[in-house]
Computed example of a mutant assay.
Amino acid sequence: MDRPTALVPHHPLHPLHYVSLGAHGPEDVVADPQGRVLTGVADGRILRIHHLGDPHTARTEVVAETGGRPLGLELLPDGALLVCDAERGLLRVGLDDGAVRVLADRAAGEPLRFCSNAVALPDGSVYFTVSSRRHPLGQWVGEIVEHTGTGRLLRLAPEGGEPEVLLEGLQFANGVAPSADGSFLVIAETGACRLTRYHLSGPRAGEADLFATLPGMPDNLWRESPDGPIWVALPSPRVPPLDLLHRASPAVRRAAARAAVHAPYRPSATIGVLAVDDDGRTVHHLARRRSGFRMVTSVCATGDHLVLGSLREPGVAVCARPAAG
């Protein structure tokens, strides 16, 4: 099913204030039950941000250091944190003691490269994405340009072991979130500007299909609660010349990718976030052109606020949460 999302924003996305973290690249943001926000930054630290609603009293604390580059985060029912580390693999981090344990650093006989996002289901299994088997995080733009389709969805069983590869051929697999009833997962394919559905149960279990097409490149996904929508970060709108390049030959795309990884990258000034329901319909669409806060790679909700993370910025942006409906 093909459900294009409107290009015109339903509401403007205007940050109320910013909270500096003293570090760059809070790539993913997740809210805990107390309304605090957790994020991982470029130097490997996991930070917890308090009092985000008030820029004068907001403060951060370091809760752990992964020794790598943390990307996607997922809170576990026991209070620990799942971390997809682009350098170290899938990690479990204790938020009380800062202990870091590697859950998986290999899959299908090869080292995990560019582990991106994870979600834990009630049965104890963990589903997570690998964005690229060809390009590391530092060359992510090369993966987008070359359009290799080497992204994966993997499953780590409750008893551990080596992860099972469930899906291959994904275009920069990124955020992942469960449906309300746990019957399927939604996966962001950044390089294809779409959300893909992977069926976990029912007659189509193990199959994937299109969930929604988007007006931009999706990054992290976040589900606040089973009865809430799935929030989608859009760091960039669609780029028509890039869509055209993706139809070129592999040799042309490889040459373009080699040039792209050595060229200065300036993020788009157009940012956005979406919220979709379990039928792929848009519940909220907020966007801003000429934004000073760029490359919004994540969004979460806490209280009356939306909190935006970014792979590039030195802090997070706090916006008003849209009204229900």
Rank of each mutant, 00 (worst) to 15 (best):
A324C: 13
L137V: 12
L210I: 09
G315C: 11
L13I: 04
D278K: 10
R92V: 00
A64P: 00
V273E: 06
E164I: 10
R101F: 02
V8F: 12
R3I: 04
L47G: 04
G35I: 10
A177Y: 02
V239S: 07
L210F: 09
A80Q: 11
I144L: 15
Q171E: 14
H24S: 15
V316A: 04
G44S: 15
L167M: 14
D277W: 09
R59V: 06
L38Q: 13
V63K: 03
T302G: 06
F184G: 01
I271M: 07
P229Q: 10
L167G: 11
P241Y: 02
G22C: 04
T302Y: 06
G325F: 13
H284C: 10
P229Y: 14
F128D: 02
P218W: 11
L71Q: 06
S249A: 10
V119N: 04
L91T: 04
G202S: 09
H284R: 13
V119C: 11
S131K: 12
R247L: 15
G151L: 08
D32Q: 02
S310P: 14
L13T: 07
D304M: 09
L52W: 06
L234H: 12
R69I: 06
V41N: 10
R133T: 04
H56A: 11
A64G: 00
T57A: 00
A42Y: 13
T129G: 03
G22R: 06
L7G: 13
P250Q: 07
R134S: 11
R253N: 11
L311M: 14
Y265I: 13
R133F: 11
R113T: 14
R290N: 15
P26N: 08
R258G: 05
G206V: 06
